[in-house]
Each structure stands twice: as C-alpha cells, then as structure tokens.
Design a protein around this nucleic acid. Structure first.
Lengths: 193, 193
DNA sequence: CCTCATTTAGTAGTTGGTACTAGCATCAGT
DNA sequence: ACTGATGCTAGTACCAACTACTAAATGAGG
C-alpha cells in the first residue's frame, strides 16, 4: 500500500476538489486510501468547505453570472461619441479573451472592439463593414485597458471611411482603416439577395 | 389569513422554485402559510426535486457551461486541417451573432472565424495576427452555414501569409489576406515588453 | 350530516456532513 | 530505551434537509 505523504495528499486533494467539486468525503477517502476522518482533517486544515457548500457556491456563481459574459452585442464600452465624426470606447481584456498560454488577447477581440465602434459611429439605420485593412502593432495582455478611437474620414453616397487606433496606456496596439457601407434602410429593399 | 387554494398555490410554487432554486421547504411553507408537509406533498405531485438536487442540477449546468464557453475560444468548428498548409472551418450564424434589425451577421464574427482558423493552421506554439486586409463581399444571415478556407501562401522566418475565403452555399461572403507572426516559444523570451 | 379531498402531525430512516474525544502507530531526538 | 510530537483512525453526538410512511384533523360540497 504505497500511500501518499500528508503534504502530497493534501496538494492532490486541493486539485481533485477544484477540478471536481462534486466529490464526497467518502469518495475521496477511497481515492487516497485513507479514512474519512483523515479527509475531514485535511479539509479542515486546507479550509475546503463541505460538498454541499461547494456545490452551492458553484450554483450561486451560475445564477449571478448570467449577464457578465454576454459582451457579445458590442465589445467594449462606448465612452464618447459624436455621430458621423468620431467615437471612443474602452475594452478591458479579461480571462475569456486571451490565449491561456501567454495571456495575449486574441486578435479578433481587438477587431471586434474596433468593428463595433465603427458600426456605432455611423448614424444610419444600416451600417455594415465592407472592408478593413488592419494591423496588430503590439500584443494586448490580460488586464489591459484598450482604448479605441474611431475617426470618420470620409462619407460619400453610401460609403464611409473610418480610421481606427487602439492604445493601451498611450501605446499603440492596433490600427486600421475601415470601409463601411451604410443606407437609410426604409429607402431600399434588399440590394443583393 | 387569506391562503391560496391548492391549484393556485402549486402554480406559484413552481414559479417560486424556478426563479429561486435555493428555497427550502421550510421557507416555502412560511411563504404560503402552510405546513412543511403540504409543501412536500406539492413537490411530490409536481415532481419538483428537493433543494439539494435542485442546487446540484444548477451547479452541473454551470460546470458544463464553462466547458462550452472555453470551446468558444475558437469561433467555428474546424472540419479539415493540414498544418502549415490549409484548413477548413464551419460556422453557423446564430441569434447571438446578428443585428436584431436585419438578422445580418456582425462583421467581427466572420473575422473571428477567419482569424481563429489562421491561428489554428499555423503549427507553432505561438501564432499572432500581425495584419489583415479583408473584405466583406456579401452579408451572411441568421442560419447561414459559413465555410472558411485558409491557404498558407508563404512562410518565411517568422511570418506567414494566409489567404482566406468564406462562402455560404458556394457564394463568397468574405475574403482576406492575413499576415501572421509566429515563433517557437521556448526559443526566445519576451520580444517587446 | 356525511364524505372525500386536503392539510397537518408525527415517526423512522437517509445523506453528508460538523465537532469533539480518544486510542494507536510511527518516527525523531535525547 | 523513554518521551513527545505528528499523523491516522475510530467512535459518538448532533445537524440540515430531506424521503417515506401512517394517522389524525379540518374543510367544503352535496
């Protein structure tokens, strides 16, 4: 019976419980081939709450976190806007936005921030991105506050040209030129089916 | 004490429990001014599981949702891939991806599909988007199955050039050229702080 | 008034624990 | 070899929040 030493067992216990909070003391005592009492002493020392409390905690997070990660609609918070002229938005890089390995923000989130700001700055019922020429100058990292500035350069007929610059602490991380198509929606029906 | 009739009470009970699964029988019995036994009979008739089972259920959903959210790391499902050569992914446009008004997919989702496919096709530990030149040829709509094709055109030193084409039923909706930066991560440390 | 549905009361047993006491085993240091 | 600390196990009493069951009280309608 090659059992673990106390310290080792406790480390594994923390891991086990955090990877599967639904483990009972009985199940854990079998896993580590010790008595239930030992598991309970371990939990006491490690301040790991009992099964029911663990589950309750997970469930509470669920019910409270309904809206926190539904950033889908518009990425970033618009903090200043003058329609058909310019706009500013702030996007804070969170866990869900980065590569796990290196905590660098995935490019499409920076693009999404820029893109949704472009849509917002156009004061027309319909605004679609037609083309973009973009550059990721420097990586943005977990926790970074990315500020995007959109400036409408041209608007003629049904196309707008917007230049974008995103910075983290005044340092450029992303820039690009967006070409937007817009239309007074009531005016025409479908253009191309 | 104007208490509810059985049927009415049971309807309210279903509502209460589904809006707050953390309610104990005792708490419910106070809310409806009946005995605990009555609440239990009600739950039995209505097939409402006990508090602990309800909480467990919610917690299970949560842990599963975490898994599906981390699957959202990559937008679209990769259906064919040859590393450093080409790749194919499928992305189905759902409610969350479109403008409510016209059910047209937001540009950044099409970009995200293309971008994550580019990251995936590069067989290196680190791959970041450096620049992109893209065009939204035609709008993609709710329900559309968008197929993206990535072809690696060049790879030299630490930069790859990838051309992208996304189609819905063989019709082009999006195209672009992506320039990717890549690196054997163990090789160097931080390049730019 | 009688009857049937509804409600309440009460007991025994379950799960997954806490909190506490106490008995060993083992190893370290003297 | 003796002492003491550390670690593990055993066992008891108690708890919340139930299930499952029996039995009695209450109420509302015919």
């Amino acid at each position: 019976m090659a059992r673990y030493k106390k310290k080792e067992r406790q480390e594994l216990l923390v891991e086990s419980v955090s990877s599967d909070p639904f483990l009972t003391d009985e199940r854990l005592s079998e896993m580590f081939a010790v008595s239930i009492q030992t598991i309970r002493l371990d939990r006491l020392e490690l301040n790991i709450p009992e099964l029911r409390e663990r589950i309750k905690h997970v469930a509470r997070e669920e019910t409270e976190k309904i809206r926190s990660l539904s950033l889908q609609e518009v990425i970033g918070e618009i903090i200043d806007i003058e329609l058909n002229s310019h706009a500013l938005s702030l996007f804070i890089v969170e866990e869900g936005h980065v590569f796990q390995k290196n905590r660098i923000a995935r490019g499409h989130y920076l693009f999404a921030q820029a893109n949704s700001l472009c849509v917002a700055v156009i004061d027309e019922p319909l605004a679609l991105t037609k083309a973009a020429d973009i550059e990721f100058v420097r990586p943005a990292k977990l926790g970074d506050k990315v500020v995007s500035k959109a400036s409408v350069e041209q608007m003629d007929g049904n196309t707008a040209v917007i230049s974008m610059e995103s910075t983290v602490e005044q340092r450029l991380v992303f820039k690009g030129v967006f070409e937007m198509y817009y239309r007074d929606e009531d005016n025409e029906g479908e253009k191309n089916g």
